[in-house]
C-alpha cells in the first residue's frame, strides 16, 4: 500500500467535492494500492492540519455549519511551504488577471517538490510555460484535467488514450452556463436577459456572469489546450472572444428555420484560438443542449473523436481530479 500525504488547498464547491469523493472511493483506492491521507485542508480563512490524516467528514460538516474548516489561522500557501506532504490538490478560485493565490501555491509546491493536481484555470491560462517547466525541473507531476470541460475527459484522453496521434484541431462547447442560456432561449423564444436570470436563480450562472457569458471562461480553457496540447505559448489575451450577450431570440429562430442552432463554440488549432457564437447544424454532434460540454477533436490517425460530458459541478469536477491523482500514482 502506497501512503500519499495530500493537502486540499481551497475548500469551495470543488474542494468539498474532492473530500466527498475521497471518502466515497476509499475502498476502490485501497484496491489500487493507494492510501490517500489528507494531512491539511485550507479555505480562504482557516485551516486544519493533522499529520495522521484529517477527518474529512468532520471538516465537511464544520464547513457546512460554521463556514470554516478548522481553528488554524495559516494560509494554504504556508501549508504548501511548511507542512511535509507529497501532493497538493489546488482548488482555489480562478483569478484570470493575476493568477491569484493559486499561482503562488503552484510555484511553491513545485519548489518544495510536491506534485500538483488542480482545477484552477487562472495560473494555467497566464503562466502555463513557467509552471510546466518548473514542474519538470522539480520532477513533479502537474495535472489539470479538471480545468477544461470538468468531468469531460479531454487532456488525458489525448495524452494517454490517443497517444501518438497529432491533434489537428479541437472545437466544442466549453462553457455549460452559456450552453444552458442559449438552449433555453431557443426553447422558450425568450430574451437573453430573461434566461440569464433563470440560470442565476438555478445557480447555473454566477451573480456576476461576465466571466461566463462574455466567453472568458471558454477562452481560458482554449488557452490551456493550446499550450498543453498544441505546444503553443498563448495567454488568454491571444484569444479572439465574442460572448453571447448580444444574441437575440429572433436570431435563434432564424437560424432554426435554416436548420441550425447557435452555440458558443471554442476553437483551437495551430493557427487560431477563438471563441464565438456559431451556427451548428441541428443533429450535428456538437449540437448538445442544457449545460453539457462537448469537444470534437480532429486527429491524424484516429480521425474525428467526440466527447460529451458535464463541464461543471462539485462531484463531476472532483471526478477529473481523482482520475488525475490516480494516474500520478498508478505506476
Amino acid at each position: 500500500m502506497k501512503r500519499i500525504k495530500a493537502s486540499i488547498i481551497g475548500f469551495g464547491s470543488v474542494g468539498q467535492g474532492v473530500a466527498r469523493v475521497l471518502l466515497r472511493k476509499k475502498e476502490e483506492l485501497s484496491s489500487m494500492g493507494l492510501d490517500i491521507a489528507v494531512v491539511a485542508v485550507a479555505d480562504s480563512k482557516t485551516a486544519v492540519i493533522d499529520q495522521q490524516g484529517v477527518d474529512l467528514a468532520m471538516v465537511l460538516e464544520r464547513k457546512a455549519s460554521e463556514g470554516i474548516v478548522g481553528d488554524e489561522h495559516i494560509t494554504g500557501h504556508d501549508i504548501i511551504r511548511d507542512i511535509e506532504h507529497d501532493l497538493v490538490i489546488e482548488t482555489t478560485p480562478t483569478n484570470i488577471d493575476t493568477g491569484g493565490v493559486g499561482l503562488q501555491n503552484m510555484l511553491t509546491a513545485f519548489n518544495k517538490k510536491r506534485h500538483v493536481v488542480t482545477s484552477n484555470k487562472g495560473p494555467l491560462a497566464l503562466k502555463y510555460r513557467e509552471l510546466a517547466a518548473l514542474a519538470e525541473r522539480s520532477g513533479c507531476a502537474f495535472r489539470f484535467e479538471a480545468t477544461v470541460g470538468g468531468a469531460m475527459p479531454l487532456i488525458n484522453l489525448i495524452k494517454d488514450t490517443l497517444a501518438g496521434n497529432d491533434v489537428i484541431s479541437i472545437e466544442g462547447i466549453f462553457n455549460g452556463t452559456c450552453n444552458y442560456i442559449l438552449t433555453r432561449m431557443m426553447e422558450e423564444h425568450a430574451t437573453y436577459e430573461l434566461m440569464l436570470a433563470e440560470a442565476q436563480e438555478l445557480g447555473i450562472a454566477e451573480k456576476d456572469p461576465i466571466y461566463d457569458v462574455e466567453g472568458i471562461d471558454a477562452a481560458c480553457k482554449l488557452v490551456i489546450l493550446a499550450n498543453a496540447i498544441f505546444g503553443m505559448d498563448a495567454t488568454y489575451k491571444d484569444v479572439h472572444v465574442t460572448g453571447i450577450s448580444r444574441i437575440t431570440p429572433e436570431a435563434l429562430m432564424l437560424a432554426e428555420t435554416d436548420g441550425y442552432v447557435i452555440k458558443l463554440i471554442g476553437e483551437v488549432s495551430k493557427n487560431r484560438i477563438q471563441v464565438a457564437p456559431r451556427l451548428v447544424p441541428i443533429g450535428h454532434p456538437l449540437a448538445v443542449g442544457g449545460t453539457l460540454n462537448v469537444a470534437s477533436l480532429q486527429t491524424d490517425l484516429a480521425g474525428p473523436v467526440i466527447v460529451v460530458g458535464r463541464g461543471a459541478g462539485s462531484i463531476e469536477t472532483a471526478s477529473a481530479i481523482l482520475s488525475d491523482i490516480v494516474s500520478v500514482y498508478k505506476d
Binding site: E171, A251, I262, I265, E267, R278, L279, V280, L286
Partner: peptide
C-alpha cells in the same frame, strides 16, 4: 454587428 458563422466542419 455580431456575425454568426457556421462551424468549420460545416
Amino acid at each position: 454587428l455580431v456575425l454568426i458563422e457556421p462551424i468549420e466542419s460545416e
